[in-house]
Simulated scan of single mutants.
Amino acid sequence: MSEVVVENVHKSFGALEVLKGVSLTVERGEVFALIGRSGSGKSTLLRCMNGLEKVNSGRIEIAGHRLEADPKALRRLRTDVGIVFQSYNLFPHLTVGENIMLAPRIVKDVTKAETQAIAREVLQLVGLSEKFDFYPDQLSGGQQQRVAIARSLAMRPKVMLFDEVTSALDPELTEEVLMVMEQLASDGMTMILVTHEMGFARRVATKTVFMHKGTIWEEGPSKGLFANPRTPELRQFVKSDVK
C-alpha cells in the first residue's frame, strides 16, 4: 500500500525552479533514500512533503493526507508525519523529557502521565533512558539528535522524514544516530531520508533516488543502483561521495 505519492511536483523560488516535475511512490514500510549534490532539490522535496514549503503545482499524498494549504489540514498531516532536521531544535530551558512531552500534550491533548510514559518509551527506543531529566546542553550532539528523533516518535507518526540529520556530527556520533535509524527501519517504519551517508543508503534503504538539477535522474533498489549506475552523473557522484 502506498504511504507516499508525489505526482509531477513543481516548486520555484522566484525565477529559480528547484523541482521540475518530480514523481515518486513510497510503499508502507519502505526506506527511501534521496541522494544528490547540494542544490539538486532533495531537501526542498522533503520540506514540501511536510507542508513546510508550498508546491507551485502537482500533488502530494502522505500518510493518508492530501497536502493542502489549510492550516487545520496541515496540523492533522503533521500528527502523522514526523520530520527531523540537521539542527536539533531542542528547547534549552526544558529537560529531555519535557522536550519530548510537549507536542503530544499540546497537539493530541494527552494527559501528563500518558506523555511521561510515551517519553520514557521513545527514549528507550533511542538508547537514552537515563537522560530523561537532563538538559540539552548536558548531552553530546549525537545524543541531542537522538532526542530529536525520539520527540518525533512520541507523536506516533506513520512516516518519518530525515533531512541530513548526521551532517553536523563527527563520525562516531553519526554512527550512533544511524544505528537508531536502522532500528526504526527494521521495525517497519516508513522513512524518507536525505543523506550523504552512501554506505547507510546502500545498506538500509529499500530504494534510492538520485536527484540531479531538480529531477529524478535515476531510481531503483539501492544495491543495484549503487552497483550499476546507468548515467555518468550518478557514476561520478558515487565515485566522489562514497565514504
Rank of each mutant, 00 (worst) to 15 (best):
residue 2 S to R: 15
residue 2 S to C: 08
residue 2 S to N: 14
residue 15 A to E: 15
residue 17 E to Q: 12
residue 18 V to N: 01
residue 23 S to L: 03
residue 24 L to T: 07
residue 30 E to N: 10
residue 38 S to H: 09
residue 39 G to K: 08
residue 40 S to V: 02
residue 40 S to R: 10
residue 41 G to N: 10
residue 44 T to P: 00
residue 46 L to E: 05
residue 49 M to C: 11
residue 54 K to T: 15
residue 58 G to D: 14
residue 62 I to P: 08
residue 64 G to Y: 14
residue 64 G to D: 06
residue 65 H to Y: 13
residue 65 H to Q: 14
residue 67 L to S: 03
residue 69 A to W: 04
residue 81 V to H: 07
residue 82 G to K: 01
residue 85 F to W: 09
residue 85 F to V: 06
residue 89 N to L: 10
residue 90 L to I: 06
residue 93 H to P: 04
residue 98 E to R: 08
residue 100 I to W: 10
residue 104 P to A: 12
residue 108 K to R: 15
residue 111 T to N: 09
residue 114 E to H: 09
residue 114 E to Y: 09
residue 116 Q to R: 13
residue 118 I to N: 02
residue 119 A to H: 05
residue 119 A to S: 11
residue 121 E to I: 05
residue 122 V to W: 12
residue 125 L to G: 00
residue 134 F to C: 12
residue 141 G to K: 10
residue 142 G to I: 07
residue 142 G to W: 10
residue 144 Q to W: 00
residue 146 R to T: 06
residue 156 R to F: 07
residue 159 V to C: 03
residue 160 M to D: 00
residue 164 E to W: 09
residue 166 T to D: 08
residue 169 L to V: 09
residue 170 D to L: 05
residue 173 L to G: 00
residue 176 E to W: 00
residue 184 L to W: 11
residue 186 S to L: 09
residue 191 M to F: 09
residue 193 L to S: 08
residue 193 L to K: 00
residue 197 E to K: 03
residue 197 E to T: 03
residue 200 F to Q: 02
residue 202 R to S: 00
residue 206 T to F: 11
residue 206 T to H: 15
residue 208 T to P: 06
residue 208 T to Q: 11
residue 212 H to D: 14
residue 212 H to K: 15
residue 217 W to R: 15
residue 217 W to G: 01
residue 219 E to D: 06
residue 228 N to A: 15
residue 231 T to M: 13
residue 234 L to C: 07
residue 236 Q to T: 11
residue 240 S to A: 14
residue 243 K to I: 11
